[in-house]
Each structure stands twice: as structure tokens, then as C-alpha cells.
Amino acid sequence: MTRIQTALWLAGHGVPVLPLSGDKRPLANCPACKGNSCGERPNSLAAGPCSCPLPCHGWSAATTDRRTVAGWEWDQAGAVGWHPGGRGLTVVDLDSPEAVQWAQTALPATRTVPTTRGEHWIYEGATQSRNGVMPKVDVKSLMSYAVWRGAGTGAVVPLPAAVVALVERSKAAARVTPHRIPQARNGTCPHRSPSYLARGIAMAAGQISGTPEGMRNRTLFRVLLAVLRTHGQCGCMGPDDLDPVWQAARSTGLPQSEIDRRYSQALSTLGL
């Protein structure tokens, strides 16, 4: 089947889909939504009023509406993406032979789908998504998308507690990151709402995750400068707000020592 035929077939079976580019990222925002100037969609992490019918904003644009799916420009797509959590499913993305071997001993057998470097293991039930819960292991479910690689083989079994525990353990590890948050200098925050901070953090984490190897150190530093310049002196940023940035940096392979160094460098550059 062609990509549009695959997408329509999935949508007809209740699987939310979206077109992806050749590098497996969502197609670029349309002019009206560029840089998330539209304020994001109502179901996004940083909820907003956007109702654009084009496939902007990644997973939150995924839909089962066949008319919407048919209207997208699939000739520009390099792959079909799908939103596992929107179908009540979880994908454990095993991105190396070693990760597959780990899953074979640690997780119950379920439906498996071969990928270019490993396998997708699909479970019934949704959970929070998290990258890097183990080396070369990501959990894709709610607020996330995966590349459709085919229906796979085997029966889908319930999501095991071990996967949920991996997500929670990874979140807890991110929360104990000993990074100092700058103190407010003027006691007032000029920003519109807490969603403004959440939107900025989500954009920052997305930039880091999408950076090619060899440029990640500089991207992390540039992103931290932008976030701290905007939010580092008004008091609206709490100890846990930068967790998505730390998680994104670790998931790309940056060592903790380099993350710490770049954060300190950004603080020093801004005099915070």
C-alpha cells in the first residue's frame, strides 16, 4: 500500500495517524503555526486554542478522521506516524539488538514489529511516554508518536507493570538533577500564564531531540540560554520545569558531566 492508503486503513481501524518527514519528524508547521505562534492545540502538553487542519504539532495532530487524513499532502511525507496512546496502546521501542535481548528476558512476549535497528513491542494499555528509560529503549504512548512499521506478529498482551515502573524511575531520576534554579530578581512574572513556560520548555526539548550528532552540545547551550534569558529572573520556573530538557539531552547520548557544564556556562553567560 502507498503511505496514504496505509494511513487511511489505520484511521479506519481507530488508529490516529499523521505524516512524517524522511527523518521521522513531523512535517514542518504551516505558516500560521510556525514557531507555535498559534498557541498549540487543545490536547497539547501546553494546551492552546489552535484548530489548524494541517498536520502541525506532531502527535497532537494525529487523527482518525479519514477526510482530514486524505486531505494531507502525503507526497511530501517520508513515513506514516501513529499515536499509540490515542489507541490505548504502548510501544516499547527497542533500538538495538542488545535492547531486544534485554526485553526478551525482562518483559512478557507480545506483538513485535521489526524496525531498522531493533523491534517495537506493542502492549495493550496506555502510559506516560519517556525516552531513554534504558539504553536504546524508549516508551511511546500518551503524547508521543511512533513510525508505523507494519502490523507485526503475535498477540497483544496487557502492558506490564515493569514498563510503567521504568517510566516512573526515569522521571524520578530526572527530578533529582542537582541544577540550581535562578532566584527571582524582581518578584513579578510578566508572562501570560504557566502554559507560556510549558510551551517554551517543550519547544526547547524538541530542538535538542531533533539535533544531529555533533551539534548537540552547542544546541543544548543555545537552548538553555534562550530559556534562562526568558524565564531565569522572573520566578516562574520551578525545580522540575527543566526536566524535559535534561531528559531530551540524556536521550541523545550527552553525558551528565557535559549537561552540567553547559548549564553552568549558560548561567555564567547571563550573570545568573
Score class of each variant (00 low, 15 high):
residue 271 G to W: 13
residue 190 P to K: 03
residue 18 L to I: 07
residue 41 R to T: 03
residue 148 W to R: 01
residue 187 G to T: 10
residue 84 P to D: 07
residue 95 D to N: 13
residue 52 C to F: 05
residue 101 Q to N: 13
residue 256 Q to N: 14
residue 181 I to G: 10
residue 241 D to W: 11
residue 101 Q to H: 12
residue 142 L to E: 11
residue 207 Q to S: 10
residue 48 G to C: 07
residue 164 V to T: 15
residue 76 Q to P: 01
residue 219 T to I: 05
residue 19 P to Q: 05
residue 202 A to E: 09
residue 104 Q to S: 14
residue 253 G to Q: 05
residue 69 V to D: 05
residue 159 L to E: 03
residue 62 A to W: 06
residue 230 T to C: 07
residue 47 A to S: 15
residue 121 W to M: 02
residue 101 Q to R: 15
residue 263 Y to M: 04
residue 148 W to K: 04
residue 143 M to T: 07
residue 81 G to Q: 02
residue 13 H to N: 10
residue 62 A to I: 13
residue 31 P to Q: 11
residue 95 D to P: 08
residue 134 M to L: 15
residue 7 A to W: 00
residue 111 R to N: 11
residue 111 R to F: 03
residue 172 A to F: 02
residue 211 T to E: 06
residue 91 V to H: 05
residue 46 A to R: 01
residue 6 T to C: 14
residue 63 T to M: 08
residue 45 L to I: 13
residue 91 V to D: 02
residue 160 P to Y: 02
residue 194 P to K: 08
residue 122 I to C: 01
residue 190 P to M: 09
residue 94 L to S: 08
residue 198 A to I: 06
residue 21 S to I: 00
residue 97 P to Y: 03
residue 245 V to L: 04
residue 103 A to C: 06
residue 81 G to D: 06
residue 121 W to R: 13
residue 137 V to F: 05
residue 153 T to V: 13
residue 169 R to F: 01
residue 206 G to K: 01
residue 138 D to E: 09
residue 15 V to R: 13
residue 79 A to W: 13
residue 68 T to M: 14
residue 112 T to I: 13
residue 170 S to N: 12
residue 162 A to N: 11
residue 179 H to Q: 04
residue 136 K to F: 11
residue 67 R to A: 13
residue 66 R to L: 02
residue 50 C to W: 05
residue 105 T to V: 08
residue 1 M to D: 14
residue 158 P to V: 00
residue 198 A to L: 09
residue 173 A to S: 15
residue 212 P to C: 14
residue 107 L to A: 06
residue 90 T to N: 14
residue 239 P to N: 04
residue 62 A to S: 11
residue 106 A to D: 08
residue 118 G to S: 08
residue 213 E to Y: 09
residue 1 M to F: 11
residue 113 V to N: 04
residue 28 A to M: 02
residue 235 G to W: 06
residue 206 G to I: 06
residue 94 L to I: 04
residue 108 P to E: 03
residue 46 A to F: 03
residue 91 V to E: 00
residue 28 A to S: 11
residue 15 V to Q: 09
residue 112 T to F: 03
residue 123 Y to G: 04
residue 233 Q to I: 03
residue 128 Q to Y: 05
residue 144 S to H: 12
residue 178 P to F: 11
residue 197 L to A: 02
residue 63 T to E: 12
residue 146 A to E: 08
residue 147 V to I: 07
residue 73 E to A: 06
